[in-house]
Design a protein around this nucleic acid. Structure first.
Lengths: 153, 153
DNA sequence: AATCTTTTGTTGCATGCGCAACGATGTCAA
DNA sequence: TTGACATCGTTGCGCATGCAACAAAAGATT
């Protein structure tokens, strides 16, 4: 009891709303949810969406490339790619130079789908940028600094 | 092929590193992971940690209160609370006024644990604030604006 | 060449999550 | 009071996820 009051007086300003990891997680969840509304109608999950985006701009890539680039586990990428192949959006071939690698690439159907979805995603991005206004640059700067920071905890 | 070039020329600046939902998700994941290093040694999961924090500052609360306040599903809160009770950190009683409600509160052991963990969490928070420096206020402002924005997508 | 190590992608397994259904309790109206 | 409806918390179920183990292939070392 006394312990309570003492500790709370020592830690008065610890509010979840002011705690950066919490607020950041909430904001990220909201943006991800709003964005997912764009591609979920097409039956894409978030991992599948990320693979599609990466493939659209990278052409022919392996699972390992996506893993490193988009910070997704191998298994996550593998399963997403398998379903995308079943859906006819992605083609999986064996890399002729290295038998271990799988060459992932979009099919025509996959490209057509992205041509339909990407403009909507970009429109959402522009909405967010307009919403942030003058704080946008500082916001981006802060995010990159957080991402590149060492974990000193 | 021609379609590719055409679309890419129309959507040239769509890079994942510049796409706010993606970067925000990455940053949130990193901060959450670094913070989890503080309380994971004590056997707490992230949902359990959030329940503990809320209980520490809110005293006696119901599952529904936590659900609304911390944006966690009922089931998530319920299972977290059940495990916390098993671990002896949280006490579950029936609300005398309303039989449906469950009165959650920290045990002495739970309070002692939080008294040990919260200073470390606050130190991490101060590290983040120091890292952001002058961008901190704009960063906070941007986050709240994103959280309060309507989903117009 | 032969063997050992490393890398790549898939799969099994245990765990956690979201959603819906459910029992229990409370509220309201007739 | 009774019955219809709402609310709260738990649980079952399907699914995704992270981790480790694994087979196949490539590379390194002798």
């Amino acid at each position: 009891m006394d312990q309570d009051i003492e500790i709370k007086s020592v830690l008065p300003d610890f509010e979840l709303d002011a705690f950066l990891p919490y607020v950041l997680a909430e904001a990220a969840q909201k943006l991800s949810r709003d964005l997912a509304a764009i591609y979920r109608d097409c039956g894409l999950s978030t991992p599948q969406w990320r693979v599609m985006v990466h493939l659209f701009y990278s052409g022919q890539v392996s699972v390992r490339d996506i893993e490193r680039r988009v910070s997704m586990e191998k298994s996550k990428v593998s399963r997403a790619a398998a379903r995308l192949e079943t859906a006819g959006l992605v083609e999986k071939r064996a890399d002729p130079a290295d038998g271990r690698l799988v060459a992932l690439s979009l099919t025509d159907q996959g490209r057509a789908l992205m041509a339909r979805l990407l403009p909507r995603a970009l429109e959402y991005q522009r909405q967010l940028e307009g919403l942030l206004g003058p704080d946008l640059n500082g916001f981006r700067h802060a995010l990159t600094r957080l991402l590149n920071s060492e974990k000193t905890a």
